[in-house]
Amino acid sequence: MKSFHPMLYGLMLLAFLTFARGDAAEDVDVDEDVKRHTLVQVGETAPDFNGKTTDGRTMTLSALKGKVVVVYFFSTQVVPCIAEMSHLQSEVYEKLRNRDDFQLIGIGFGKGSTREELVILGGENKFTFPLVPDADRQIYERYFTKYAPRTVVIGKTGVIRYLASGYHELTSIPKLQAALARELAVNAP
């Protein structure tokens, strides 16, 4: 096998950094941009929605009142979403799935999020939590206008208790677990 030429590596790195940065003339504050594209806030009542899961059940947020609900908005076009979903499956859903006061819902939005595509995604990755296709972004756009993944924790009264944007391998799941521990301790059965 031939070694990778250092100059070619350098050019590829430069091209990646230029592409990743986007318009160099425009400095974008990512945190401010995320806030600008967030339509909901902690402390507000979560916008109601309903959708059909990949197995044909109708999920309505208002029907889940009395439960702590994690709504995970993902795009199949964003690779870190699938990585985080694997952690949601093993480190959150598997540990809490038998609780009567907990529900996790994955909502795939945009391109690549038809029912058929999410059935394949769920099967290939052994996701057992409900997946709801939102190819036309009807649910997503009640909460956000840009960026994936997005995580929303809704308390038992229907109020948003936690919001997160992006996936950070070392911190995202522990922060979510801490938020869930607080919410599940409130009025525990």
Score class of each variant (00 low, 15 high):
E117V: 03
L118C: 02
V119E: 11
I120H: 03
L121K: 00
G122V: 02
G122D: 13
G122S: 07
G122H: 11
G122W: 13
G123L: 06
G123D: 10
N125A: 01
N125H: 05
N125F: 03
K126N: 11
K126P: 03
T128M: 10
T128L: 05
F129G: 00
F129H: 04
F129D: 07
P130V: 10
L131E: 03
L131Q: 08
P133D: 09
P133R: 06
P133N: 12
D134I: 09
D134Q: 07
D136N: 15
D136I: 11
D136W: 06
R137T: 15
R137Y: 12
Q138V: 09
Q138G: 12
I139S: 12
I139Y: 09
Y140C: 09
Y140I: 07
Y140D: 03
Y140G: 09
E141V: 12
R142G: 15
Y143Q: 06
Y143S: 04
F144W: 11
F144C: 14
F144K: 15
T145I: 04
T145E: 10
T145Q: 07
K146I: 02
Y147A: 07
Y147Q: 13
A148L: 10
A148F: 10
A148K: 05
P149C: 08
R150Y: 02
R150T: 02
T151A: 03
T151C: 02
V152K: 12
V152Q: 09
V152I: 00
V153I: 06
I154Y: 00
K156H: 14
T157I: 01
T157P: 03
